[in-house]
Design a protein around this nucleic acid. Sequence first.
DNA 1: ATGTTC
Length: 467
Amino acid sequence: MNGKQITKLGFEKKAIKLALAAAGQREKAGLSRHEILDELQAVQANPQAYLTGGVYAELATELTSQQEAQQARQTAALRPTPLPYRVWGEDLIEPGARTQMDVAMQLPISRAGALMPDAHVGYGLPIGGVLATQDAVIPYGVGVDIGCSMRLSVLPLKPDSLTTDEARKLLLKHTRFGAGVSFEKSFRGDHEVLHEGTWRDQPVLRHLHDKAAEQIGTSGSGNHFVEFGTLTLPQADLGLEAGEYLAVLSHSGSRGFGAQVANHFTKLAQALHPTLDPAARKLAWLPLDTEEGQAYWQAMNLAGRYALANHDLIHARLARALGVQPAASVGNSHNLAWRQRVGEHDLIVHRKGATPAEQGQLGLIPGSMADPGFVVRGRGNPDALASASHGAGRQMGRKAAANTLAKRDVQAYLRERGVTLIGGGIDEAPQAYKRIENVIARQGDLVDVVAQFTPRVVRMDTGSEDV
DNA sequence: ATGTTC
């Protein structure tokens, strides 16, 4: 018996040596070459049956692990070409975002997708990306700020019933901005989401409960904001008469809690797919029939509810301070994954910076700190997996904005539109964003505009450089 | 987006 005959059978690497050693023992036991080759083929065909002992146990162990590695490579292999997907506002989208979406559409778990007109490059899936997968969820397909969402409260007040100075004082008193920030202990709010039993179901949730409790009702940093403005409703809708109303609009997420959940499960997903193509490494997924997949699904949905709770508190505080109850309220999450029927299939639809837009579903698409936002009603377009943009979308990265935009130009932009800004950084300048009018115009087959919100007094975190 | 980080 020699190595040539063994390799001819298809044994590879360490298995060749182990097969030779076993064959030698069988020769000593008096078996013919032909009989030994038959035995080796039998081991090769079903190594699992030889694992427990005997002369072929070591070979069987090696073959089993080679099989598993091969299987892992196959399940992690990308499709040679991306599945087709539709793009809205192609002329507004940078090539990098298209490339990221192409990679996402090459994942073996991907089934359908779409790119919204506010799309720009993000971690893993682009912002403005919609991705439907089969039986698996991608933590970075949802994003770091799990459950990031919008809320609008329309108040039963005339727009001019609140002065700019009063609005400023209310925002300063009742909102908190900045990474790691929480309300002072004596001023901290509470919410039923903090008392759910879910927090006790996983070590990672138990660990993060106290942080979540500290930060409840706060707004974070980056593009998050709370603002007073004027809602213009051209015709009766939302249970309201046509007209102009004082309104509060907020953009907030799941704060440190959601960020740590996202990073924890992304690491788990990457560890589960060690052979995943490096181009798709940030799109590592968790199969939903695994313990890890179920744990992420539970944690993600808790972070989604927690983000909504932050809006609950922000709006309740401001309304109470004004002595009113909202006359109407609209809101939506735009960083989350949902189970959704897509054609014949029950899929996991990731929206990473995309507004759910089922037929008749209300949503909010903000512009920028000084540009209008829109209340929209979904048209349930199946090619967009019933989605729309989540905002105007960046046309300039944070660094590029800080390097190229001038403070006085941003100040002039705010002044021209009569917007008062508290905090805010040059990296969030309106000029760093696409023109919201263009972005809305590109998605007329995804949503109908119901009302326009014009910001007047805006609070954001202080950016890398103040405006 | 988070908070000073595998």
